[in-house]
């Protein structure tokens, strides 16, 4: 493993290349410009394809094509661009193609701004486009974790033939931290893709489609997809706990807010307030069970987000009345200080 100082966006790009990325398609948008530029510089040198598309719509459909052809493919964007990709992502999900999509969220709705925000949680975790589908959604809270989760995103996406999303924001994208980069994968480590369109030579033809006009046929495809989702829910829930053993108040926060919440836990403990943190790493599948178990032991489960309360809905579904479930959120790209969150914590303890 090599340890280097890197920006989040660059670490994601480098980790993707080391994960055997063959094709990357993009359309420029802040705050993930460094990712695009890194790919433009590095990927062609290392045997991959970099292509700046005419739009996010085109970029995701190029990913659809490259993934159908059986190579590791990726695109990255930020909120408005991810909205444009939704039809394509829905096709990719139903066509059972693996790929990785990076969303460096920004403030919204509309053009919003480029400051850190978490307003795309619903879109990322509840499907986003049309139809009954999910993405595997991974939320890093540090630069090294971003690099690690990129590798995991490719692996899980391949294993389940479900597209995976890295969900972060400009804070993670632009901050510099020391990173342990993953070792480059060998081509033989990438799972075979007997279903890919590579030319029907010596085998029956392969067809990549999300379409079946017959309700019974489409139902079958949909049920197979749902079965995969249940399997992912059983096997792939990931989260981190900080000082939860004796906690009286549990903070649930992810990504940038998860990182800030760690400082809140430390500050609160210095004051003798027993605060713990549960930081979901997979937003889908959401760690319902771990949140539920902790909710049995604490009085308060405080959700903290850079949104009007999106993950909060999942937290309440998990807690189901076992504890009180207040919410604190900031909007518009305002990032609260640990002290500000501590004030919020104090409302519910003592």
């Amino acid at each position: 493993m090599s340890r280097v100082l890197m920006r989040g966006n660059e670490a994601i790009a480098e980790a993707a290349i080391r994960s055997g990325l063959k094709c990357y398609f993009c359309y420029p948008i802040t705050p993930q410009g460094e990712l695009v530029e890194y790919m433009a510089r590095e990927l062609p040198k290392r045997g991959g394809v970099f292509l700046q598309a005419e739009s996010e719509v085109a970029a995701i459909n190029m990913v659809y094509g490259a993934a159908a052809a059986g190579v590791r493919a990726m695109t990255s964007s930020s909120s408005p661009g991810i909205s444009l990709k939704q039809e394509g992502i829905s096709y990719i999900a139903m066509a059972r193609l693996p790929c990785v999509i990076v969303n460096m969220m920004r403030g919204g709705p509309g053009l919003g701004n480029i400051a850190p925000a978490q307003g795309d949680y619903f879109q990322a975790t509840k499907g986003g486009g049309h139809g009954d589908y999910h993405l595997i959604v991974l939320a890093p809270s540090t630069v090294p974790e971003a690099a690690e989760l990129v590798r995991l995103a490719f692996e899980l996406s391949d294993r389940y033939r479900v597209p995976a999303m890295i969900l972060a924001d400009g804070m993670i994208g632009q901050m510099m931290e020391p990173v342990e980069l993953p070792e480059p994968v060998e081509p033989e480590d990438i799972p075979e893709r007997p279903w890919a369109v590579t030319g029907a030579k010596g085998r029956p033809k392969n067809v990549i489609t999300s379409f079946d006009l017959e309700p019974e046929g489409l139902k079958e495809m949909s049920l197979a997809l749902q079965e995969t989702y249940r399997e992912i829910e059983r096997n792939e829930v990931r989260w981190e706990e900080v000082e939860t053993e004796d906690a009286e108040l549990l903070i649930v926060a992810y990504g940038t807010m998860g990182r800030i919440a760690k400082t809140v836990v430390r500050l609160a403990r210095q004051e003798g307030i027993k605060v713990g943190l549960l930081r979901p790493i997979t937003l889908w599948p959401f760690p319902y069970e771990p949140v539920r178990e902790l909710a049995e032991r604490v009085r308060t489960v405080l959700t903290v987000e850079l949104s009007a309360g999106q993950m909060w809905e999942d937290v309440r579904l998990a807690v189901e009345g076992r504890a009180e479930t207040p919410f604190y959120g900031e909007l518009g790209g305002v990032v609260p200080s640990p002290k500000r969150i501590l004030e919020e914590v104090r409302k519910y303890v003592g």
Binding site: N61, A66, A69, A73, A200, F211
Partner: peptide, 28 residues
């Protein structure tokens, strides 16, 4: 209708899908 490999594209996006396939595997 055809006996070769096929990909079904979203409405209007066939040229983008074709680009992705051809760039990934220029021999096809």
């Amino acid at each position: 209708f055809f006996n070769c490999d096929f990909v079904q594209a979203a409405h209007g996006r066939a040229c983008a899908v074709a680009t992705g396939i051809k760039r990934a595997r220029p021999d096809l």
